[in-house]
């Protein structure tokens, strides 16, 4: 029996609050922290729509509408090299990283000597945990034009007359960035493929062997199709990042001689925002980047759902 005047839902709610007070107490700090460091800064997106002046509340600043957003495409030609560099490097990196991890996992699976394959996994996984500054330091030690180990050696051997400027010459920038990414992430990316291979039932291999399939045929008709679902999920997961570059990587490797082939959206936003202090413009470019990323993720997800039945949401 429900007493008059006490709403049943309300009663359930207050009972829930009392009964679960400890759970709410455990949840609350995280809710607040995420609110302050994630939801509050979202209101900063307003900066893109107003004439920002430090100290003046955003809502009373002069409204400028979409001026900053349109300006990105009409006031300068920057968007041409930015979009070109960002897409070229990120799409090539995604393809290169996936392909190398995929092939590496398959080849590693063919190594019969367990200790050796464990050793290779251990060594290749290590660069994932190494910071970009270390990689920057290693790169200059290896590839600096005059004092780098590789250039010195090639000159000593008489292969080249003068050092190749990998770090500064814009011709090599894209290839160099993609290669560094592969070096750092191949071991990490292959972990998921390796576990996917071990999840393929050994019955398939046994049946194939009885049917007379050789090693290449087993790789081609069992291992590779068995890895495809994993590859597709990884591709969807990573497609949302196609406009997001590895900030530290590009911050460190972009310099005065190679910037035309190296400058990507994230670095441009940083430059305009925190170095040239044009907050509205930098925020506007950032918002566009975020929304286009989300759209790409949704589109790839939908296409994949239709074509293969695999989707992440």
């Amino acid at each position: 029996m429900i007493k008059a005047g006490v709403h049943p839902v309300k009663r359930v709610k207050s009972r829930n609050l009392v009964r679960n007070r400890y759970l709410y107490a455990m949840l609350l700090p995280a809710v607040l922290l995420v609110f302050v460091f994630w939801y509050v800064p979202l209101t900063g997106w307003l900066i893109a729509f107003v004439q920002y002046r430090p100290g003046i509340p955003l809502l009373s600043a002069k409204w400028t509408g979409l001026q900053q957003f349109i300006g990105f495409f009409t006031d300068t030609d920057d968007y041409v090299h930015l979009i070109r560099n960002t897409l070229a490097i990120n799409i090539s990196s995604l393809i290169a990283n996936m392909t190398t991890a995929f092939l590496f996992a398959i080849l590693l699976n063919e190594i019969r000597w367990r200790y050796f394959s464990k050793l290779i996994q251990t060594v290749t996984f290590f660069p994932f945990f190494v910071s970009w500054i270390i990689i920057y330091s290693l790169s200059s030690a290896m590839f600096a034009t005059s004092a780098g180990a590789i250039n010195e050696t090639l000159i000593q051997w008489g292969v080249i007359a003068e050092g190749v400027n990998l770090l500064g010459d814009p011709r090599y920038s894209w290839m160099f960035m993609i290669a560094l990414g592969v070096w750092k992430y191949a071991g990490y990316n292959s972990v998921i493929f390796i576990s996917a291979i071990s999840a393929i039932s050994s019955e398939y291999y046994e049946a194939a062997q009885i049917d007379g399939a050789n090693r290449f045929q087993r790789i081609l008709y069992i291992t590779i199709p068995g890895l495809m679902p994993t590859a597709i999920v990884l591709l969807i997961l990573n497609s949302g990042w196609i406009l997001n570059s590895n900030f530290e990587q590009f911050y460190l490797f972009t310099n005065a001689t190679n910037w035309q082939r190296m400058e990507v959206l994230d670095i441009y936003i940083y430059k305009y925002g925190l170095q040239l202090l044009n907050y509205p413009y930098a925020t506007a470019v950032g918002i566009m980047k975020t929304f286009i990323s989300l759209i790409i993720l949704m589109v790839v997800n939908q296409i994949s759902k239709k074509a293969t039945g695999k989707a992440i949401f």
Binding site: V36, F37, P41, L42, G44, Y279, T290
Partner: peptide
């Protein structure tokens, strides 16, 4: 799925 970006964080 997305973040507010570098400038709003800096101001915060």
């Amino acid at each position: 799925y997305f973040t507010s970006g570098i400038i709003p964080m800096y101001l915060l």
